[in-house]
């Protein structure tokens, strides 16, 4: 499904955030990309959603080179990805409900479909009853879950979550992780980028260090 082939990303003249990284992710996997701060996790995410271009190498989605997509085809590609950012990027002047529903509105969904989907995802992320609140009226964990709800409401093929538990306490971390596992069980590919060691059984783990891929649990070569 996703293929990185000797991908490097250089910032400035000589700093490599990623160096010759190769890996393969199949459909319906649960992937953990781990590594300490600054190891290049968010860089991988940005390359995947084509927000940044690789300096070298190829990133492909079902065999399609993501960075050769025409500008006009980019939206359609991105709609297949649900992204949760490290800083959530919720829209401050939209309510919980609107932060989710506008994503479907953008794609021209019918009001009745939107209502139903919003109710469903709110159930999944356990935010029922808080529809009318604004993001600043939510706790950190709730904001995180709202960001997840927004990412999954369009039923993307993959959901990418950057630091899902970084700023959460144990309890909330577990809740968020359980929600993500649930989403995975419902048939979505899940990729988590985290500097913490998370306990997920049967996960595909990629370990980064200083921009290099140190370990890939599915290939024992490293």
């Amino acid at each position: 499904m996703i293929q990185f082939e000797e991908v490097s990303k250089r910032y400035g003249k000589s700093f490599y955030a990623l160096k010759d990284v190769s890996f393969h992710i199949s459909e319906k996997e649960f992937v953990l990309v781990t590594g300490s701060s600054g190891s290049g996790k968010t860089t991988i995410l940005k390359l995947l959603i084509a927000e940044e271009k690789p300096t070298k190498g190829k990133v492909s989605f079902y065999g399609l080179n993501v960075h050769n997509l025409r500008h006009s085809d980019l939206p359609r590609y991105r709609q297949k990805l649900g992204v949760v950012f490290q800083d959530y990027r919720l829209i401050p002047d939209k309510t919980v409900k609107e932060n989710i529903s506008f994503v479907m509105e953008m794609l021209g969904a019918k009001d009745s479909d939107i209502r139903e989907s919003v109710r469903n995802v709110l159930n999944i992320v356990r935010l029922r009853g808080k529809e009318k609140r604004y993001p600043h009226q939510l706790s950190g964990g709730e904001q995180q879950r709202l960001a997840i709800a927004r990412a999954i409401v369009n039923e993307p093929d993959i959901i990418l979550v950057d630091e899902p538990t970084a700023s959460l306490d144990k309890e909330n971390s577990k809740l968020v992780l359980d929600i993500l596992k649930k989403i995975h069980e419902l048939g979505t590919t899940v990729i988590l980028f985290t500097h913490k060691q998370l306990k997920v059984s049967h996960a595909h783990t990629l370990t980064l260090q200083d921009g290099k891929l140190m370990h890939d649990s599915y290939t024992k070569e490293h």
């Binding site: 829209i91 509105e105 953008m106």
Partner: peptide, 16 residues
């Protein structure tokens, strides 16, 4: 800015 950025990211058409 965030709103514009997010909308672009999720692939909204410009008119939205």
């Amino acid at each position: 800015k965030t709103e514009i950025w997010v909308k672009r990211l999720i692939g909204a058409e410009n008119r939205y």
